[in-house]
Design a protein around this nucleic acid. Structure first.
Lengths: 157, 157
DNA sequence: ACCTTTTTGTTTAGCTCCTTTACCAAAAGC
DNA sequence: GCTTTTGGTAAAGGAGCTAAACAAAAAGGT
């Protein structure tokens, strides 16, 4: 009569996936032989590497933290020899962020870690026919839209 | 020829959902008129409420933190009048944790917040036929299994 | 029964990451 | 030209965690 069992199965599965992802992502044993980087450091490093030449403020926006937090974080990465700050050529105010050689090494190691993880997943997903994958994506799109409205509700419109 | 587009759509959708969930979950404006509780406090409170009478160590295990952190957290909740500690009747060592009346109020408010969130989602999902929901759940099951093996890889076997 | 080891809880010190506040300098807007 | 906005930094402090040190109770071996 109803599909509530399927819905419960789906949502609880999704919740477990979310929690397990946090657990994987937050584990400090992190990637790469290059150094003992915390998850946050690595995350910041990725933000810098993904789009070099952003100023401190933009890095903060990208990471969802204050400009102060971004400044501290970039300073820390600079202290570890992984990032580099440079005055913007166009003006005397902005400070642009880049990765050093060592920074790129860590970036690559991290990217590969994720890539490897993703590849295992992709291999499994290839077993499913395209139509089924599309259905799943459509359903997840609905999930995302519900979350979007919740976020809008929480952080002003 | 290949379904790699569908796979990319699916995985990136999933990643966005995970990140948005974190954002919702971690926002400190949290639920209930009862008090200004942080996400961690609420999370700990839920752990106590979900299975009253656990000792400090078990609460820590449930939350994935050290017994020290659990002790501090329960102490904090006790200080706010939300939790209560009691010596175990069976021995003189364990300290069992319970919620107070105020604690239950906060617990309920939080549960309702989640419930409301979930209800909005369920309403949307009811539009899909059962078979499609089952397909999505099966695909997510694969995702979870890949994560499980990653977790096993990270934290001993 | 006695001694050792394990288990449980607390406290303390210190770490990471964050925010808020204050402040300075550069840029942008009238 | 003066005011406001924007970008960066620094200081102070809070939340939450861990590790280490400690004490007391329980469990175990002999």
């Amino acid at each position: 009569m109803n599909n509530s069992d399927s819905i419960v199965a789906l949502t609880s599965r999704l919740l477990r996936i979310i929690h397990k992802h946090s657990r994987i992502e937050e584990t400090p044993i992190r990637t790469g032989r290059s150094a003992g980087l915390t998850a946050k450091e690595l995350h910041s490093l990725s933000a810098i590497g993904q789009q070099e030449g952003l100023n401190i403020k933009s890095i903060g926006d990208l990471l969802g933290v204050s400009k102060s937090a971004a400044s501290q974080m970039v300073g820390k990465l600079e202290g570890k020899g992984l990032a580099r700050k440079e005055k913007a050529p166009a003006n005397d105010k902005d400070v642009l962020t880049y990765l050093t050689e060592a920074g790129w090494e860590a970036f690559e190691a991290h990217r590969e870690f994720h890539e490897r993880h993703l590849r295992a997943l992709v291999e499994q997903l290839e077993e499913f026919p395209d139509t089924q994958l599309a259905v799943a994506a459509a359903i997840l799109a609905v999930v995302e839209s519900v979350m979007d409205s919740r976020i809008r509700e929480l952080f002003g419109d």
